[in-house]
Simulated scan of single mutants.
Amino acid sequence: MGIFDWFRRSPVETRSAMSGFTAELMAARESYISGRRGIAELTAAAQSCISLWEGAFALAEVDGTNLLDKRTLALTARSVALRGEAVFLIRDKLIPCSDWDLSTRDGIPKAYRLSISEAGGGTTQTALAGEVLHLRIGVDPAAPWLGTAPLRRASLTAGLLNALESALAEVYENAPLGSQIVPYPEGPETDMTTLGRSFRGQRGRVLLRESVNVSAAGGPAPAVDWKPSSVSPDIERSMSVESVAAARDAIAGAFGVLPGLFNPATTGPMVREAQRHLAQWTLQPIAGLLAQEASEKLGAAVDIDVMGPTQAFDAGGSARALATIVQAYAQAKEAGLAPTVVDAALARLDWK
């Protein structure tokens, strides 16, 4: 061992893992072509939830930086909701990236190759991890550098909703809705043609004109009621409407939205509770992840508040709690309790 060996970096051991490089490359290419977002993002249920994410982030208040403006926050929310990730190149402003690949060390991104969309054609840039703002949600321990969208995590339910809405769309497009088979007594051909033409231009069509000119035991034809027979598909018995509603509620739950928010019979308290649930348990944690990433990459303490601007709290309950605290302080003062005792009591209730 020579003296110069002290200045040499120890070699990094590289091993092939899982199914090999070729299989991973093919899987990555397939993911790029088919997308990682799922197939239900074109439904109104998914887009309604994504719009809630986008609107809440656009209302959020940011302290510590001017780079995260309203437009950037809204774009971040939509990208995270659809792709599970949002990547921005840090320059004098945040530049959104349409596609990227990266290299890692110890599972942590070290360098990026970024594709930036332009009106006349995209460009590609290489940047270090410190120059890239990368927000990820739904991270898998097997690939901590990748995020996962809610629709991807609930791919079975997303596929069910896609199949149901596609089937219903095909039924309403191709099925003979409103068409009927009308029986009537036999008559001259001219009368049949005139009667058949009289149905044209109406809602639905007469597919067949069934004649009842038959004999019964050698006698005249019995009197037949002109009751039409509908050929419209019986959608109610297939339970497709209930299945679509259940799948829609499940997709809303995957986005952190209470299904009761989209119920036609919902009430004001339910709407406010759904807003609080979405902001507190879904959007504010994502905002915290974005604030942490921005604090590490921008060199300043960044804080993002979603709860306050969206009024996602019980204003009446907060007012009653404040009145109770003030009354408790007044009673403690009358009783001669020391401030430390009062503070200790409030601390046990997590009020201080």
Score class of each variant (00 low, 15 high):
311 Q>I: 00
338 A>D: 15
104 T>I: 04
152 R>N: 12
101 D>T: 14
197 R>N: 15
141 P>V: 08
232 S>Y: 00
220 P>L: 13
258 L>Y: 07
322 L>C: 02
327 Q>R: 14
17 A>H: 08
254 A>M: 09
68 L>I: 06
296 E>W: 10
183 P>T: 03
3 I>Q: 04
141 P>W: 04
170 E>G: 11
60 A>C: 05
20 G>D: 09
76 T>W: 03
140 D>T: 08
105 R>K: 06
292 Q>Y: 08
44 A>Y: 02
205 R>D: 15
34 S>P: 05
52 L>V: 06
100 W>Q: 10
227 K>L: 02
311 Q>G: 06
224 V>H: 02
194 T>W: 07
191 D>M: 00
300 A>Y: 01
289 L>R: 13
247 A>R: 00
332 A>N: 07
306 V>H: 03
117 S>F: 14
12 V>Q: 10
327 Q>D: 15
48 S>P: 00
331 Q>P: 02
345 A>W: 07
41 E>F: 15
266 T>V: 13
91 R>F: 00
338 A>L: 12
42 L>P: 04
255 F>D: 09
33 I>N: 09
286 I>P: 04
140 D>A: 10
242 E>L: 11
307 M>I: 13
151 L>R: 01
277 H>Q: 11
243 S>L: 13
309 P>L: 09
153 R>L: 09
229 S>T: 15
26 M>Q: 13
302 V>N: 03
51 S>N: 12
252 A>W: 07
300 A>Q: 12
321 A>H: 06
82 L>C: 11
124 T>E: 12
163 A>W: 06
348 R>H: 05
150 P>A: 05
139 V>W: 04
347 A>T: 13
246 A>N: 06
90 I>W: 03
340 T>R: 13
95 I>E: 13
290 L>G: 08
214 V>L: 06
1 M>E: 14
50 I>K: 07
21 F>A: 15
39 I>W: 01
221 A>G: 04
173 E>P: 00
95 I>S: 13
242 E>M: 01
303 D>S: 14
256 G>T: 07
128 L>S: 15
72 T>G: 03
135 L>P: 06
326 V>N: 11
52 L>P: 08
66 N>T: 14
246 A>T: 09
146 L>M: 11
13 E>S: 00
123 T>R: 14
62 V>R: 10
270 M>L: 04
305 D>N: 14
158 A>P: 07
44 A>C: 05
152 R>P: 08
189 E>Y: 10
228 P>T: 00
263 N>I: 08
129 A>I: 07
346 L>E: 07
36 R>Y: 04
249 D>G: 11
167 A>C: 07
187 G>K: 05
159 G>Q: 10
147 G>F: 08
87 V>E: 06
172 Y>I: 05
69 D>H: 12
118 E>Y: 13
243 S>F: 11
26 M>P: 01
101 D>C: 08
212 V>D: 12
301 A>W: 00
8 R>N: 10
176 P>I: 03
143 A>P: 03
317 G>S: 08
127 A>I: 12
102 L>G: 11
126 T>P: 05
287 A>C: 00
342 V>L: 15
